[in-house]
Amino acid sequence: NRMHLVCPMSLTPYVDPCKSGHGIWEEFSMSFTPAVREVVEFAKRIPGFRDLSQHDQVSLLKAGTFEVLMVRFASLFDAKERTVTFLSGKKYSVDTLRSMGAGDLLNSMFEFSEKLIALQLSEEEMSLFTAVVLVSADRSGIENVNSVEALQETLIRALRSLIMKNHPNETSIFTKLLLKLPDLRSLNNLHSEELLAFKVHP
C-alpha cells in the first residue's frame, strides 16, 4: 500500500491510508488539474498555436504539459535549502521526501531547476522559452509535422532575438536554454516511469 505521494503537484505527500487507490488518484487529479488548465490557457495564447489542428494541439499538450509545469514550477525546488514546496505551500526537505520513496527523479529536478533559475530569465524570456518547450515537432502522434515545425522555428527565432537583445554580452544563454530541452525530455521520461509505477501500484 502506497503511503506517500512525493509530487509537489499534490497538496501533501501524505496519503490517507483509509482511501482507496481510486480515491487517492482522484484527489491527486483534482490538485493538479488547475495547473494543467493554466498550461492549456498559456498554449492558447501562443501566437499560431490555435491555428494547428486540434489533434496536434492536444498531442503537444499531452506530451509537453509535464515539461511546461517543470519550467513554470522550477522555483518550488529550493536547491539552497534543499526543500520542495508542495501546492499547499508546505515545504518538505529532500531527506524527508527521500524517506518517503523519492529517488533519482527528485535529484534531477533539483539539478534542472537550479540551472534554469541561475539563468535569471525575465518573465518574457521564460514565457517564450516555455512556448518553445511546448511546441516541439518531434512529439509522438503529431499529424502535421510541417506546421508544428514551422511554428517551432518561429518561436526559436523569437527567443534567440529576445535573448540577444536582452543579453548582448551573454550569447551562451540561448545555447544553454536549447540544451535544457533534452534535459526536460529526460525528466519527462523519468516522470512517466514513476507515473506508470504509481498507476500500477496506487
Binding site: T33, V58, L61, A63
Partner: peptide, 27 residues
C-alpha cells in the same frame, strides 16, 4: 499503461480546456 498522460486523465482535462475556448467564442 503505455500512455501515462492518458492514465492521469490529462487528455480529458486538456480537451475540455481547449473546447471551453470554442464554447466561449460561440457565446
Amino acid at each position: 499503461f503505455a500512455d501515462p498522460a492518458s492514465n492521469l486523465g490529462l487528455e480529458d482535462i486538456i480537451r475540455k480546456a481547449l473546447m471551453g475556448n470554442l464554447d466561449d467564442k460561440q457565446d
